[in-house]
Design a binder for these strands. Structure first.
Lengths: 209, 209
DNA sequence: TAAGAAATTGTTCAAGCGTATAATAGCACC
DNA sequence: GGTGCTATTATACGCTTGAACAATTTCTTA
């Protein structure tokens, strides 16, 4: 019986492909659909190869979760420009593609549901969450002081918690039921609400956006 | 070989117990841990009985999801009193026990992750979500008009979306990392934020709470 | 171009899965 | 206190799962 020909890939590329295949499986069929065999089919290899790269199925899932968190946070954490623009970009990025879509939510929820079950995932989660909120708190502090507003640590902390919640919640709503909202309606609501919470305008005249 | 003795339970009670056992399994071990055998063990019966009450495993999961949604929304939708108190209670209920805890989140996330995969669950989800947001929109409309503020449908819609998002997000934060917040800190942040968004006070002098 | 390292395949295994069904035991009713 | 109904148990079946491992192929390098 003829053995199938195969391509010998660099380790980094192969690991990446396997993780990508894992995410595809989870997004399409849920965590239950992410079996080593399904992942292998999706990646175009055989099941045995997965255990050549990952100690166990748990390990590939942990790596996959790291990738999911990175994709959800990396863009927003690298905003540039003046404090106002950084804050606005942070908001917009979190509520538009590719961060906000049903696939992201599907992946996120799949892993979140295991965070309380799997201590390894809990560690990965906690890191991502704190880093995200700290980034937001920094943006707020910069913006508030630039505008000469109260930027005390206590106020920044509370505002960061509230605005983090607001962004998370609107992200959720958009991902779960994007078709219930008009184009960029959620972004508009977010910007208006955050302006109100901060007591400052985020869309000053003359700033084309 | 001695057959184990058993109790012949009323249908409603047995179905309730089986669903409760299902939720326990999901909360403890994730959706993957909710196998018919595990559920049966948790409920103190044998696996075969589950298929006597539920057409398939899918069906018991659907029923279980209905229960989860009901528990997350029923208390908040039955608030009473004047518009202000109803709104405040709505907020507090959603951010405190038993709605806000890690078990609730675990269950919610488990099902949410399957909403995009399973059309039956998607229907159940959509109903619950719309009913929740409508309830909030009604509370806001009542409260705003009582206070003589702008209660136009467009404003109520946008405020409901924003406040729904804020509550969802803070609920998430509290469930995921309750120990990062002081006792009732999230409730305080929610009340303050919503007062700011509405431009009205929710804690008038003389209202003991 | 031969050899050796290791990436990849193909096969096997025991365990656990959802489902099906026959046997049994609890309970209501006469 | 039988009798009949059916809730419940017990067992079996076919499949899929994660894992293990030997066989094979590719690629590097000398």
């Amino acid at each position: 019986m003829a053995r199938r020909t195969f391509h010998r890939a660099p380790e980094a590329e192969r690991r990446h492909d396997l993780i990508e295949a894992t995410l595809d499986c989870i997004a399409e069929y849920g965590l239950q659909g992410a079996t080593v065999r399904q992942i292998a089919i999706k990646a175009g290899v055989t099941a045995g190869l997965i255990r050549h790269y990952f100690q166990s199925k748990e390990h590939i899932l942990q790596e996959a979760y790291r990738v999911v968190i990175a994709r959800l946070t990396e863009k927003a954490e690298r905003v540039t420009g003046d404090p106002e623009q950084r804050l606005v970009d942070f908001i917009v990025i979190n509520l538009t593609e590719p961060v906000a879509n049903s696939r992201s939510l599907s992946l996120w929820a799949s892993f979140i549901s295991r965070v309380s079950v799997d201590p390894e995932l809990a560690v990965i989660h906690r890191e991502g969450y704190l880093s995200f909120r700290n980034a937001l708190e920094g943006l707020l502090a910069d913006f508030l002081s630039t505008r000469g507003a109260d930027a005390s640590p206590e106020r920044c902390r509370r505002l960061a918690i509230a605005i983090n919640g607001l962004l998370d919640g609107l992200w959720l709503e958009g991902c779960l039921a994007g078709e219930l909202f008009e184009e960029s309606e959620l972004v508009g609501i977010a910007l208006t609400s955050i302006e109100t919470l901060l007591g400052l305008s985020l869309r000053q005249a003359g700033t084309a956006r």
